[in-house]
Computed example of a mutant assay.
Amino acid sequence: MIHQETRETVCRLHAELVRYNLVAWTAGNVSERVPGEDLFVIKPSGVSYDELTPEAMVVCDLQGELVEGDYAPSSDTAAHAYVYRHMPEVNGVVHTHSTYASAWAARGEAIPCVLTAMADEFGGEIPVGPFALIGGDDIGKGIVETLTGHRSPALLMQNHGVFTIGGSAKAAVKAAVMCEDVARTVHVARQLGTPIPIEQHHIDHLYDRYQNVYGQRSHL
């Protein structure tokens, strides 16, 4: 079976969505671009997370057409494909319906940058993309239009849920985990009063430090 390494990576990362309580039942998906090819690997549609194996993953081309696999690809495949076609720097895409972030999406409201962790990871607010129906290019178009030129690797698609992008699928999963974490904290802060926005120059400083200085500089 070809593209085994990418299949194994994508399968393993789906377990992280379960681990961090970002998905329910069969909802949600992770995909990753196949290095050096116009292909990506994504979760099959409607298959339980407990039943996912590297062999169950499906390979699609950048038009979203099935190339290899025994199952039909995720219902979000067209959206992932659109992102890969129009954002060549993106190598991983994740979708979840995580509770707190999806609650912000249900209100059509961006998550304001009121935490240093948000400045670090997202470089500002987590924006809202437009309402779009599942199954075609509309979600992908909303992702690309909203995130092009934006620091945030995450957005909230109105009335839907979270989509994240990254230089790898692992980076996109991290963004999804962090998106839910800050969505929950800012929601709680709203219950207590009015969160205090971080000034833009402080956001810029925090973002630059986290992206370029923090940690051991190993690539996700």
Score class of each variant (00 low, 15 high):
35 P>K: 08
171 A>R: 09
17 L>A: 04
196 I>A: 10
19 R>Q: 11
2 I>R: 13
145 E>I: 06
131 F>W: 14
103 A>W: 02
45 S>H: 14
26 T>S: 14
175 A>M: 10
32 E>D: 04
57 M>F: 08
54 P>S: 09
123 G>W: 04
106 A>E: 10
50 D>A: 12
14 H>G: 00
31 S>V: 06
22 L>W: 03
76 D>F: 06
137 D>Q: 07
166 G>E: 11
157 M>W: 06
154 A>N: 04
42 I>H: 04
13 L>N: 02
214 Y>D: 07
9 T>C: 04
159 N>Y: 15
54 P>F: 10
22 L>K: 00
77 T>C: 12
103 A>N: 04
181 D>I: 04
6 T>N: 04
126 I>N: 05
122 F>I: 05
153 P>L: 03
51 E>W: 11
144 V>H: 03
194 T>K: 14
131 F>D: 03
71 Y>M: 07
80 H>Y: 15
57 M>K: 02
17 L>F: 13
14 H>D: 05
193 G>V: 14
43 K>D: 06
67 V>F: 09
196 I>Y: 08
74 S>F: 12
36 G>F: 11
6 T>A: 07
180 E>N: 01
137 D>W: 05
31 S>A: 05
215 G>Q: 11
128 V>K: 01
20 Y>V: 01
109 E>G: 08
133 L>W: 08
194 T>S: 13
73 P>K: 01
20 Y>P: 00
176 A>C: 12
149 G>W: 13
87 M>H: 00
96 T>R: 02
73 P>W: 04
41 V>T: 01
178 M>Q: 13
180 E>C: 06
52 L>G: 03
173 V>W: 03
117 A>K: 10
200 Q>I: 07
10 V>G: 06
160 H>P: 02
76 D>V: 02
176 A>I: 07
72 A>E: 13
185 T>L: 13
129 G>R: 00
201 H>C: 00
123 G>M: 06
78 A>G: 01
115 L>F: 11
21 N>T: 10
183 A>E: 11
174 K>T: 11
111 I>W: 03
64 G>H: 08
84 Y>V: 03
107 R>I: 06
126 I>R: 01
65 E>G: 14
166 G>N: 09
220 L>K: 06
45 S>P: 02
69 G>M: 06
114 V>T: 15
1 M>E: 06
214 Y>T: 07
195 P>T: 12
206 L>F: 15
189 A>W: 09
147 L>Y: 05
217 R>W: 15
25 W>K: 08
39 L>T: 07
122 F>E: 03
207 Y>M: 02
156 L>W: 14
120 D>A: 13
29 N>G: 08
159 N>E: 15
63 Q>Y: 14
110 A>N: 03
70 D>R: 13
13 L>T: 08
168 S>A: 10
135 G>L: 15
162 V>F: 12
32 E>W: 05
176 A>E: 10
152 S>V: 09
209 R>Y: 14
149 G>M: 09
185 T>Q: 10
17 L>E: 05
213 V>S: 07
68 E>M: 09
48 S>P: 02
181 D>A: 13
25 W>I: 12
120 D>E: 15
171 A>K: 10
17 L>H: 02
134 I>Y: 05
165 I>R: 01
217 R>M: 13
187 H>L: 08
62 L>Q: 01
67 V>Q: 15
163 F>Y: 14
90 V>H: 00
68 E>P: 00
151 R>T: 01
86 H>S: 00
123 G>E: 08
219 H>G: 03
86 H>A: 04
115 L>A: 04
